[in-house]
Amino acid sequence: FDIYVVTADYLPLGAEQDAITLREGQYVEVLDAAHPLRWLVRTKPTKSSPSRQGWVSPAYLDRRL
């Protein structure tokens, strides 16, 4: 999967189903980028939180090589 970094805090609107909150600087794996406005991502697990999966706007993501 492609690795992206979150460029700004992402707080989903209440109406968005299956969306997750992301923090600036967080790394995520993009699982599904087929839709231009919503990408399915999975967060990297940390010592304090397990990995999470949900939909985010790709405008908040920047690809890492």
Rank of each mutant, 00 (worst) to 15 (best):
P36W: 04
A34L: 09
L37A: 11
R64N: 13
H35P: 03
Y60W: 06
D9W: 03
G25F: 03
P12T: 08
G14E: 15
W55A: 01
V5T: 05
G14A: 14
P45N: 06
A59S: 12
W39V: 02
R42Q: 08
L13N: 14
L61T: 00
S51D: 03
S48L: 12
T46K: 06
T46A: 06
R42C: 04
D62M: 12
H35W: 06
A34W: 07
Q26H: 04
Y10G: 04
Y60P: 01
R52E: 12
E16G: 10
S57R: 03
R23L: 12
T7Y: 03
A59Y: 08
I3G: 04
A34G: 12
A59H: 10
G54N: 02
I20T: 03
Q53F: 07
P50Y: 05
R23P: 03
V28E: 00
E16R: 04
A19Q: 10
Y27M: 12
I20D: 03
A34M: 11
I20S: 02
A59P: 02
R23M: 12
K47R: 11
L31S: 01
E29C: 06
Q17K: 14
D18V: 04
E24Y: 12
V41R: 01
Y4V: 03
R63C: 07
Y60T: 03
G25D: 02
V5R: 12
D32C: 07
P58Q: 03
R23G: 05
K44P: 11
Q53E: 13
G54K: 01
A8H: 12
V5P: 01
D62Q: 14
G54R: 01
K44H: 12
D18C: 08
V41L: 01
Y4M: 06
T21Y: 13
G25K: 02
E24P: 11
S51M: 10
E29Y: 14
A19D: 09
P45T: 07
Q53T: 15
L61W: 01
T7L: 14
F1W: 12
D9Y: 04
K47A: 14
R63T: 08
E24V: 15
L40V: 02
R23S: 10
Q26F: 03
A8E: 08
D9I: 03
A59M: 12
W39G: 00
T46C: 07
G54S: 03
R52N: 07
P12D: 07
D32H: 07
T46H: 08
S49T: 13
L40K: 04
K44Y: 15
W39Y: 03
W55G: 01
K44E: 11
A33K: 15
L22K: 00
P58V: 05
V28F: 02
L61G: 01
P12I: 09
L11Q: 12
T46D: 12
V30C: 03
Q17E: 14
T21C: 11
L61Y: 00
V5G: 02
D32Q: 07
A59K: 12
P58E: 02
A15M: 13
T7R: 10
S57E: 08
D2P: 15
Y60V: 11
A33D: 09
S49D: 13
Y10P: 02
V5D: 01
V56F: 03
P58C: 04
Y4S: 01
V28S: 00
T21P: 14
Y10L: 05
P45F: 04
K47I: 12
P36S: 07
R63G: 10
Y27T: 09
E24T: 12
W39N: 00
L61K: 00
V41K: 01
G54Q: 04
P45V: 05
Y10E: 02
I20F: 13
R52W: 12
D18I: 04
L11V: 14
P12G: 08
A33N: 14
Y10Q: 03
K44W: 15
P36K: 06
P36V: 06
F1P: 10
P58R: 04
V56M: 06
R23T: 11
L37D: 15
R38K: 11
D62L: 11
L40S: 01
E24A: 13
V30F: 01
V56R: 00
A15Y: 14
L11C: 09
G54H: 05
V30W: 00
A19G: 14
P36I: 05
R23V: 11
W39I: 01
G25N: 03
T21Q: 13
K47C: 09
A33S: 13
D18H: 08
Y60N: 07
Q17V: 14
L40T: 01
L31T: 02
Y4W: 14
W55H: 03
T43M: 04
Q17W: 13
S51R: 06
T46F: 08
I3H: 06
R52G: 05
G14L: 13
P50K: 07
D18P: 06
A33Q: 12
R42A: 06
P45C: 08
W55T: 03
D9G: 06
E29N: 04
D2K: 11
I3M: 09
P50H: 06
E29I: 13
D32N: 11
R63V: 11
V5A: 04
A59G: 07
R42P: 00
L31D: 01
L22H: 01
W39K: 00
T7M: 10
Y4E: 00
H35G: 10
R23C: 08
W39H: 01
D18F: 09
I3W: 15
F1A: 09
A59L: 14
I3T: 10
Q17M: 12
T21W: 15
A8I: 08
G25T: 02
V6E: 00
L37Y: 11
V30Q: 01
S49N: 12
A15R: 02
G54W: 05
V28Q: 00
D32F: 08
G25S: 02
S48R: 05
S49M: 12
D2Y: 14
L22T: 01
T43V: 09
T21K: 09
V41D: 01
R38T: 05
Y10R: 03
I20E: 03
L61P: 00
W55F: 09
T43H: 04
P50M: 06
E16L: 09
T43G: 01
L22V: 06
A34H: 12
V30D: 00
Y27R: 06
P50V: 08
R38M: 11
K47W: 11
H35A: 06
T43S: 06
F1L: 10
A8Q: 13
V6D: 00
G25R: 02
D18W: 08
P12R: 06
R38C: 08
R23Q: 11
W39C: 02
W39S: 00
T21N: 09
V30S: 01
H35S: 15
W39E: 00
Y60E: 02
A19I: 07
V30M: 02
G25I: 02
G54A: 05
K44D: 05
R64T: 13
R64G: 11
L11I: 15
T21I: 13
P50G: 07
R64K: 13
K47Q: 11
I3L: 11
L11F: 15
W39L: 01
D62A: 15
Q26R: 03
P50N: 06
R52S: 10
A19E: 12
Q17P: 14
G25Q: 02
